[in-house]
Design a protein around this nucleic acid. Structure first.
Lengths: 109, 109
DNA sequence: AACATATATCGTAATATTGCAATAAAACAA
DNA sequence: TTGTTTTATTGCAATATTACGATATATGTT
Protein backbone atom coordinates (compact mmCIF):
# COMPACT_ATOMS: atom_id res chain seq x y z
CA UNK A 1 0.00 0.00 0.00
CA UNK A 2 1.82 3.15 1.23
CA UNK A 3 -1.33 5.20 0.89
CA UNK A 4 -2.74 6.86 3.99
CA UNK A 5 -6.47 6.27 4.41
CA UNK A 6 -7.43 9.91 4.92
CA UNK A 7 -11.14 9.24 4.53
CA UNK A 8 -11.45 7.34 7.80
CA UNK A 9 -10.08 10.22 9.88
CA UNK A 10 -11.60 13.53 10.91
CA UNK A 11 -10.79 16.74 9.10
CA UNK A 12 -9.00 17.97 12.21
CA UNK A 13 -6.80 14.89 12.36
CA UNK A 14 -5.92 15.14 8.68
CA UNK A 15 -5.26 18.87 8.88
CA UNK A 16 -3.02 18.60 11.90
CA UNK A 17 -1.03 15.70 10.48
CA UNK A 18 -0.59 17.51 7.16
CA UNK A 19 0.88 20.50 8.97
CA UNK A 20 3.13 18.37 11.18
CA UNK A 21 4.31 16.42 8.15
CA UNK A 22 5.28 19.60 6.33
CA UNK A 23 7.33 20.68 9.35
CA UNK A 24 8.80 17.24 10.03
CA UNK A 25 12.12 17.56 8.29
CA UNK A 26 15.32 19.03 9.72
CA UNK A 27 15.93 21.06 6.56
CA UNK A 28 12.49 22.63 6.79
CA UNK A 29 12.96 23.36 10.49
CA UNK A 30 16.30 24.94 9.60
CA UNK A 31 14.72 26.99 6.83
CA UNK A 32 12.05 28.36 9.17
CA UNK A 33 14.64 29.12 11.86
CA UNK A 34 16.76 30.96 9.31
CA UNK A 35 13.82 32.99 8.05
CA UNK A 36 12.85 33.88 11.62
CA UNK A 37 16.41 34.78 12.55
CA UNK A 38 16.98 37.06 9.55
CA UNK A 39 13.34 38.23 9.51
CA UNK A 40 13.52 37.45 5.78
CA UNK A 41 15.35 35.12 3.54
CA UNK A 42 16.22 34.52 -0.08
CA UNK A 43 16.50 31.02 -1.46
CA UNK A 44 20.16 31.32 -2.37
CA UNK A 45 21.05 32.22 1.22
CA UNK A 46 19.65 28.88 2.26
CA UNK A 47 21.64 26.98 -0.34
CA UNK A 48 24.79 28.43 1.19
CA UNK A 49 23.61 28.18 4.81
CA UNK A 50 22.43 24.56 4.66
CA UNK A 51 24.51 22.06 2.74
CA UNK A 52 21.86 21.09 0.24
CA UNK A 53 21.53 21.54 -3.51
CA UNK A 54 19.48 24.41 -4.88
CA UNK A 55 16.88 22.03 -6.30
CA UNK A 56 16.47 20.39 -2.91
CA UNK A 57 16.01 23.69 -1.09
CA UNK A 58 13.48 24.79 -3.68
CA UNK A 59 11.55 21.57 -3.11
CA UNK A 60 11.51 22.06 0.67
CA UNK A 61 10.36 25.66 0.21
CA UNK A 62 7.54 24.34 -1.97
CA UNK A 63 6.35 22.06 0.82
CA UNK A 64 6.40 24.90 3.33
CA UNK A 65 4.52 27.08 0.85
CA UNK A 66 2.08 24.19 0.50
CA UNK A 67 0.78 24.66 4.04
CA UNK A 68 1.06 28.42 3.63
CA UNK A 69 3.46 28.95 6.53
CA UNK A 70 5.81 30.92 4.28
CA UNK A 71 5.12 33.21 1.39
CA UNK A 72 7.48 34.63 -1.20
CA UNK A 73 7.60 38.06 -2.76
CA UNK A 74 9.64 38.89 -5.83
CA UNK A 75 12.62 41.09 -5.04
CA UNK A 76 14.54 41.77 -8.24
CA UNK A 77 15.84 38.46 -9.52
CA UNK A 78 15.49 36.78 -6.16
CA UNK A 79 12.50 35.87 -4.06
CA UNK A 80 12.15 37.03 -0.47
CA UNK A 81 10.53 34.41 1.69
CA UNK A 82 8.92 35.21 5.01
CA UNK A 83 6.57 33.76 7.59
CA UNK A 84 2.84 34.17 7.00
CA UNK A 85 1.63 35.62 10.28
CA UNK A 86 -1.93 34.32 10.01
CA UNK A 87 -0.96 30.75 9.17
CA UNK A 88 1.78 30.76 11.82
CA UNK A 89 -0.73 31.73 14.49
CA UNK A 90 -3.21 29.20 13.20
CA UNK A 91 -0.62 26.41 13.52
CA UNK A 92 0.18 27.60 17.04
CA UNK A 93 -3.51 27.44 17.95
CA UNK A 94 -3.93 23.97 16.50
CA UNK A 95 -0.92 22.71 18.43
CA UNK A 96 -2.04 24.42 21.63
CA UNK A 97 -5.46 22.80 21.31
CA UNK A 98 -3.84 19.44 20.83
CA UNK A 99 -1.24 19.73 23.54
CA UNK A 100 -3.72 20.66 26.21
CA UNK A 101 -2.30 22.24 29.31
CA UNK A 102 -2.92 19.91 32.20
CA UNK A 103 -1.15 16.69 31.45
CA UNK A 104 -2.33 15.26 34.77
CA UNK A 105 -5.80 15.08 33.27
CA UNK A 106 -4.63 12.71 30.57
CA UNK A 107 -2.27 10.50 32.51
CA UNK A 108 -3.38 7.11 33.77
CA UNK A 109 -0.65 4.71 34.89
CA UNK B 1 18.62 9.05 -2.50
CA UNK B 2 15.63 9.31 -0.14
CA UNK B 3 17.98 9.54 2.80
CA UNK B 4 17.81 12.62 4.99
CA UNK B 5 21.23 14.13 5.59
CA UNK B 6 20.93 14.31 9.39
CA UNK B 7 24.62 15.09 9.89
CA UNK B 8 24.38 18.57 8.40
CA UNK B 9 21.69 19.70 10.83
CA UNK B 10 21.83 20.59 14.51
CA UNK B 11 20.76 18.15 17.19
CA UNK B 12 17.80 20.40 17.98
CA UNK B 13 16.63 20.40 14.37
CA UNK B 14 16.91 16.62 14.12
CA UNK B 15 15.20 16.04 17.46
CA UNK B 16 12.30 18.33 16.68
CA UNK B 17 11.77 16.87 13.23
CA UNK B 18 11.90 13.31 14.60
CA UNK B 19 9.15 14.15 17.07
CA UNK B 20 7.03 15.95 14.49
CA UNK B 21 7.46 13.04 12.09
CA UNK B 22 6.24 10.55 14.68
CA UNK B 23 3.14 12.68 15.26
CA UNK B 24 2.57 13.44 11.57
CA UNK B 25 0.01 10.82 10.71
CA UNK B 26 -3.76 11.05 11.18
CA UNK B 27 -3.90 7.57 12.72
CA UNK B 28 -1.29 8.51 15.31
CA UNK B 29 -3.08 11.77 16.10
CA UNK B 30 -6.29 9.76 16.47
CA UNK B 31 -4.54 7.25 18.75
CA UNK B 32 -3.24 10.01 21.01
CA UNK B 33 -6.64 11.71 21.09
CA UNK B 34 -8.29 8.43 22.02
CA UNK B 35 -5.79 7.75 24.79
CA UNK B 36 -6.28 11.27 26.14
CA UNK B 37 -10.06 11.02 25.94
CA UNK B 38 -10.30 7.68 27.73
CA UNK B 39 -7.31 8.48 29.99
CA UNK B 40 -6.08 5.00 29.00
CA UNK B 41 -6.40 2.72 26.06
CA UNK B 42 -5.86 -0.85 25.03
CA UNK B 43 -4.70 -1.72 21.53
CA UNK B 44 -7.83 -3.64 20.60
CA UNK B 45 -10.02 -0.64 21.38
CA UNK B 46 -8.13 1.25 18.72
CA UNK B 47 -8.60 -1.47 16.13
CA UNK B 48 -12.34 -1.10 16.61
CA UNK B 49 -12.32 2.68 16.97
CA UNK B 50 -10.19 3.42 13.89
CA UNK B 51 -10.79 1.42 10.75
CA UNK B 52 -7.32 -0.06 10.50
CA UNK B 53 -5.98 -3.60 10.79
CA UNK B 54 -4.49 -4.76 14.08
CA UNK B 55 -1.02 -5.02 12.55
CA UNK B 56 -1.25 -1.44 11.33
CA UNK B 57 -2.34 -0.11 14.72
CA UNK B 58 0.47 -2.03 16.39
CA UNK B 59 2.94 -0.44 14.00
CA UNK B 60 1.66 3.07 14.71
CA UNK B 61 1.84 2.40 18.44
CA UNK B 62 5.44 1.32 17.96
CA UNK B 63 6.30 4.64 16.35
CA UNK B 64 4.68 6.58 19.16
CA UNK B 65 6.56 4.44 21.67
CA UNK B 66 9.69 5.22 19.67
CA UNK B 67 9.62 8.87 20.74
CA UNK B 68 8.45 7.83 24.22
CA UNK B 69 5.21 9.82 24.12
CA UNK B 70 3.22 6.73 25.12
CA UNK B 71 4.11 3.84 27.34
CA UNK B 72 2.37 0.50 27.78
CA UNK B 73 1.78 -1.51 30.91
CA UNK B 74 0.65 -5.13 30.89
CA UNK B 75 -2.91 -5.56 32.10
CA UNK B 76 -3.80 -9.23 31.93
CA UNK B 77 -3.64 -10.30 28.32
CA UNK B 78 -3.94 -6.78 27.02
CA UNK B 79 -1.63 -3.79 27.22
CA UNK B 80 -2.77 -0.47 28.64
CA UNK B 81 -1.22 2.43 26.78
CA UNK B 82 -1.04 5.89 28.25
CA UNK B 83 0.70 9.22 27.76
CA UNK B 84 4.15 9.65 29.28
CA UNK B 85 3.81 12.88 31.22
CA UNK B 86 7.49 13.83 31.11
CA UNK B 87 7.87 13.30 27.38
CA UNK B 88 4.56 15.02 26.69
CA UNK B 89 5.72 18.13 28.57
CA UNK B 90 9.09 17.99 26.87
CA UNK B 91 7.43 17.99 23.43
CA UNK B 92 5.27 20.92 24.49
CA UNK B 93 8.37 22.85 25.57
CA UNK B 94 10.18 22.12 22.34
CA UNK B 95 7.20 23.30 20.32
CA UNK B 96 6.73 26.38 22.47
CA UNK B 97 10.38 27.29 21.99
CA UNK B 98 10.01 26.90 18.27
CA UNK B 99 6.71 28.70 17.88
CA UNK B 100 7.85 31.81 19.69
CA UNK B 101 5.15 34.10 20.90
CA UNK B 102 5.44 37.36 19.09
CA UNK B 103 5.02 36.65 15.42
CA UNK B 104 5.44 40.34 14.62
CA UNK B 105 9.10 39.94 15.48
CA UNK B 106 9.55 37.42 12.71
CA UNK B 107 7.44 38.92 9.98
CA UNK B 108 8.98 40.95 7.18
CA UNK B 109 6.81 41.57 4.13
C1' DA C 1 19.61 41.06 -28.39
C1' DA C 2 22.91 38.40 -25.53
C1' DC C 3 24.29 37.30 -21.08
C1' DA C 4 24.12 36.63 -16.09
C1' DT C 5 21.66 35.51 -11.88
C1' DA C 6 18.07 33.36 -9.14
C1' DT C 7 14.47 30.14 -8.64
C1' DA C 8 11.37 26.39 -10.31
C1' DT C 9 10.50 22.11 -12.50
C1' DC C 10 11.55 17.55 -14.50
C1' DG C 11 13.43 13.10 -14.38
C1' DT C 12 15.51 9.67 -11.86
C1' DA C 13 17.62 6.75 -8.16
C1' DA C 14 17.65 5.45 -3.43
C1' DT C 15 15.28 4.99 0.69
C1' DA C 16 11.11 5.37 3.79
C1' DT C 17 6.33 4.83 4.92
C1' DT C 18 1.83 2.75 4.92
C1' DG C 19 -1.16 -1.10 5.22
C1' DC C 20 -2.32 -5.79 5.70
C1' DA C 21 -2.32 -11.00 5.75
C1' DA C 22 0.02 -14.46 7.99
C1' DT C 23 2.30 -15.90 11.78
C1' DA C 24 4.60 -15.70 16.32
C1' DA C 25 4.59 -14.78 21.17
C1' DA C 26 2.66 -14.05 25.70
C1' DA C 27 -0.82 -14.48 29.22
C1' DC C 28 -4.78 -16.46 30.89
C1' DA C 29 -8.73 -20.15 31.13
C1' DA C 30 -10.64 -24.73 31.07
C1' DT D 1 -1.99 -29.44 28.05
C1' DT D 2 -5.07 -27.32 24.75
C1' DG D 3 -7.45 -23.54 23.40
C1' DT D 4 -8.49 -18.50 23.54
C1' DT D 5 -7.42 -13.73 23.48
C1' DT D 6 -4.41 -9.93 22.75
C1' DT D 7 -0.43 -7.80 20.94
C1' DA D 8 4.00 -7.99 18.22
C1' DT D 9 6.63 -9.26 14.25
C1' DT D 10 7.57 -10.65 9.51
C1' DG D 11 7.15 -10.28 4.66
C1' DC D 12 5.46 -8.02 0.94
C1' DA D 13 3.28 -4.64 -2.40
C1' DA D 14 2.09 0.05 -3.30
C1' DT D 15 3.05 4.67 -2.68
C1' DA D 16 5.71 8.69 -0.76
C1' DT D 17 9.85 11.18 0.32
C1' DT D 18 14.48 12.83 -0.26
C1' DA D 19 18.16 14.44 -2.98
C1' DC D 20 20.33 16.09 -7.03
C1' DG D 21 21.77 16.94 -11.97
C1' DA D 22 19.91 18.91 -15.91
C1' DT D 23 17.06 22.07 -17.76
C1' DA D 24 13.49 25.66 -18.00
C1' DT D 25 11.84 30.15 -16.69
C1' DA D 26 11.99 34.81 -15.25
C1' DT D 27 14.17 39.05 -14.27
C1' DG D 28 17.83 42.30 -14.53
C1' DT D 29 22.16 44.01 -16.93
C1' DT D 30 25.07 45.44 -20.68
Amino acid sequence: MGLTKSDIFTQEQNELSTILKALAHPARIAILQHIIKLKACICNDLVEELGLAQATISQHLKELKGIGVIKGSIEGTSICYCIDEVVWNNIKSLLNDFFIDDVRKINCC
